[in-house]
Amino acid sequence: MFRWTARIDGGHKRVNQALVKVPGSSFVLSFGGYWAKFDHSTDLDVHGFDTGTLKWHELDTSQSIPKRFAHTATVFDDRVYVIHGQQHHLPYSRVDVFDLKSKTWTTVAENEAIARAGHTANLINNLVYVIAGSCGLEFLDSVETFDPVSLVWSKPPVGGRAPSPRDFHSAVAMGESIYVYGGRSDENAPYFSNHQVYPQDVKRFDTKTCTWSDVVVEAGSIPIGRRSHSAVAYGNRMIVFGGYNQLVDEYFSDLLVFDVKACTWSNVVAPGPSPSPRRRHGCCLIDERRMLVYGGTNQGLADVVALDEPEDDYDDLADAYVLNFEPTLKELCLLAVVRNRLDYSHVPKSLQVALRSLTQETVTVV
């Protein structure tokens, strides 16, 4: 039973940021992104969200790297690899590494791969697979790999029919496969002509054979195409939230589930304090049962360039939400105590701490 279990205010407004869960800790880190008053001269900032106390913290780093958005962040061996992204209309070709222990930055690769933004990055068998995105006024469909051990980029020979060139799609890793859904393309792809297309297909990339294949939907209504949504892997299912389709000028707040074994789509209605319609938000798994949605934007001018640029007309967001895929009886009871404003002064201290974390002024639970 999916349930939105908490809404958290008090964060910074962020759009097109990258989130990662720090292994072995309660922290989620947010890297970069922009907001309406974006300052291109400032450095990329890092904020931490404590999933235990539901509080935000800004991290002090001894070094800095250029601010960016539409990048990716991948954790490997106590380091976070921030890959590509863009500033102004210029995409980066660079890999910056954040050491989780020393809180320091190192640039390990620059101008060694195709510059791109709005791409995806998935770690499988110690390789980061970077897929699609866009570079200036051109959409991409290519696959490149980055080895975080040797710090070497490669472009493997790829078979099968690749997804149409696109950016701001989603990609989730399951086993040795990557499932790609949605995104934005163009009638004249790979070139950008402002005649947008929103693919509705699901494609599978087999990392063992480096081969693309089509995933044939067996049941369920295929959802409307979208871009700048989010997706995480939960068991055999791909959980999709939000996004935007310019052709119908609609922002989404729906929860979609694609079962990769049964090849079926379904729409899930989750009770609780749910996010407003949005796109370009950050999202990641907190643990095996929960995901975090943070920030994004939910209104503004239509895109007029191949990649998103900050605009004062957008309503950028700072709120965060926790979705629990399988709430335990204990978690449901804690939520009921808070919702009904019950006295918990006589319960064990460990439960009091958990309840206090849910009754801060910046937290709403239902």
Rank of each mutant, 00 (worst) to 15 (best):
F325W: 05
S253V: 02
P310I: 07
I286H: 00
G282K: 03
I8C: 08
N111F: 00
L332V: 06
Y198P: 09
V158I: 15
H57K: 13
V269K: 13
V128Y: 08
G52C: 11
N245M: 02
T74Q: 04
K13V: 06
C135N: 14
A171V: 12
F49Y: 14
I8G: 03
R14E: 11
H40E: 14
V108D: 06
G183E: 03
I222Q: 08
V128C: 11
N236Y: 04
T359A: 13
S276K: 10
H57R: 08
A320E: 07
G272D: 08
K349T: 12
V20Y: 10
P157H: 13
R237Q: 15
Y234A: 07
Q17I: 07
F146W: 11
H84T: 13
W105Q: 09
P165F: 02
F139G: 02
T264F: 01
V232G: 01
C284A: 09
L90S: 12
F27I: 07
W4Q: 06
V337N: 00
P91R: 03
W105L: 02
C283Y: 00
S193C: 10
D313K: 12
K203Y: 08
V217E: 00
M238R: 03
V347R: 06
I224V: 15
H71G: 05
V180T: 11
T207L: 08
I131F: 05
V269P: 00
V293Y: 03
S266G: 06
A233C: 10
F139Y: 15
V338Q: 08
L127G: 00
G295D: 04
H12Q: 15
L351G: 00
I65Y: 01
T207Y: 12
S276I: 12
C283Q: 12
P277F: 03
S25F: 10
Y344F: 15
Y244N: 01
S102T: 15
S274T: 09
E331A: 11
N236W: 04
W56L: 06
K13Y: 11
K101C: 06
G235E: 11
H71T: 10
R339M: 10
F192E: 04
